[in-house]
Design a protein around this nucleic acid. Structure first.
Lengths: 208, 208
DNA sequence: TCGTTTCTAGAGTATTACTCTAGAGTAGCG
DNA sequence: CGCTACTCTAGAGTAATACTCTAGAAACGA
C-alpha cells in the first residue's frame, strides 16, 4: 500500500514537475499534454486518470506553488521582529523568492489564469487567509503599540507586495532584465514611510 | 481609396471589438476564432488576411488598449498639480479607468500574456516610455523643489500603481467583489507618505 | 477595358485535448 | 492459491479548432 501510494505520488509529482517545466518553456496554451506526458514518461491514460484535464493539472500545480510561496513569506517574520525590520524582511522574502524560484514565480504570476483557477477558488481563499492570519499575528501587536499605522490587512499587503510586484512582473516577463532585488532598499524605504508609524520612525529615522 | 480604407478599418475594428468581447467572456484560449469571426460577421479568409493569427489580433488589441489606458493616466496630471494633488489624481485615474473600462482592464491585466506580447515588445516599450516621459514632465520639477522625494521614474510608478493594482487585480479576477475605488483614500494616503517630501507634507500634514 | 492589388469566401488539413475500451498490477480474504 | 474488487496504465480513436489554400470579387489606376 505504501509502495503503491508512493508510486502513484511520484507519477503525479512527475507530471506536476513536467507540467511546470513545459508551462515555463511554452506557456499554458503552447504546452501540449503530449509534451508533459512524454517528459514525465506517463501514458495518455495515466495523465487523464490522475488529472481530469490539462486545466486540472494546472490548478493543482497552482495551489502547490502558492503554498510554497506563502511558506516563504510566513517564514520571513516572527514575533520578535520590529516594524521596520518586519517590513524589510517581508519585502526581501518576496523578492528573493521570485528570483530564486523563477519558474514557480513565473507560473504563479504570469502563466496561471483566473479562469482555470476558478475551480480551486475556495482552496485559494483558504490559503490566502491562512497567510493573512500568520502575518497578522506579527502585525497586530505592532499596530496596537503604534509602531505600524492602522490599516486593513489587505491594504498592508498591497503596500508591501504591490510595488515590489511591479518590478517582479517586469522581470518575470522578460520586459526588464535588471534583477528586482536591486530595488530592495528603495522599496523598503518607501514601504516603511507608507506603513510605519511616526513613533517607530522617530526611533531610527532615516539617516543619509 | 478613402472609402476602401474606411471599410477595411471597420472590418478590422469589428474584429478587434469582437475579439475583446469574446476574450472577456471566454478567456484567451477559450475564445475561438470562429466565435470572433461570427460576432464580427467576417469570413475565415478575412480574419486571416487582416490578422495573420489569433495571437496577432490579440497583440494588436493589446497595444490599442494600452494606448487608451496611458491616455487616461496622462490626462490625470498637468503642470499645475502639486505633489499631493498629482499623486491623488494618478491613483484615482488608475482606479477609475479599471472600474469604468472593466473589459479593457481585464484584457490588459488578466488576459494578455507576455508570450504573445513578445512580438510587439518594441511598440510596448515605446508606449511605456512615452507615458513615463509625460509623467516626468509633471514630476521632475516637484522633485527639484523637494516636494517629491527623489527616486527613479519606475520606482515612483511602482509606488503609485503597485498597491492599487493589487486591489484591481483581485476585483478583475472576481476574487474580490468590493469596488477597488473604496480603497482610494487610504491608498492615496500611503502613497503620499511614500513619495511626497517632508516639505510638502508639512504644508498640509495629516489631520485626524 | 485591362491589370494589379487588396480583400472575401469557404473547403480542406494538421494538431491536440480528451474519450473509450481493454487489460495489467495489487490488496484483501477464504 | 484462486477469486474479487479496485486502481492505474495503455494507446487507438474522436471531435474541435487554428490555420492554409485556391479561387474569385471589388476597388482602382491607366
Amino acid at each position: 500500500m505504501d509502495r503503491e501510494a508512493a508510486q502513484v505520488a511520484t507519477a503525479r509529482d512527475d507530471l506536476l514537475a513536467a507540467g511546470l517545466a513545459v508551462f515555463d518553456r511554452d506557456g499554458f496554451e503552447g504546452a501540449t499534454v503530449a509534451a508533459i506526458r512524454t517528459r514525465a514518461r506517463a501514458s495518455n491514460g495515466s495523465f487523464f486518470h490522475l488529472f481530469g484535464s490539462k486545466k486540472e493539472l494546472a490548478g493543482t500545480l497552482f495551489l502547490e506553488i502558492l503554498a510554497r510561496y506563502h511558506a516563504a513569506i510566513v517564514a520571513a517574520v516572527d514575533e520578535s521582529c520590529g516594524a521596520r525590520e518586519g517590513v524589510a524582511r517581508l519585502i526581501r522574502a518576496h523578492l528573493d523568492w521570485v528570483v530564486n524560484s523563477r519558474r514557480e514565480a513565473r507560473y504563479l504570476f504570469e502563466i496561471s489564469r483566473s479562469e482555470w483557477t476558478e475551480a480551486i477558488r475556495g482552496a485559494q481563499r483558504t490559503q490566502n487567509s491562512r497567510l493573512a492570519e500568520a502575518v497578522e499575528r506579527w502585525r497586530a501587536p505592532l499596530v496596537e503599540r503604534g509602531e505600524l499605522l492602522p490599516m486593513t490587512s489587505s491594504v498592508f499587503f498591497s503596500q508591501i507586495i504591490g510595488p515590489a510586484q511591479i518590478f517582479c512582473r517586469a522581470w518575470l516577463s522578460g520586459r526588464d532584465r535588471t534583477d528586482p532585488r536591486e530595488q530592495a532598499e528603495i522599496l523598503i524605504a518607501c514601504a516603511i514611510r507608507a506603513v510605519v508609524g511616526p513613533d517607530a520612525i522617530q526611533k531610527t529615522g532615516e539617516t543619509a
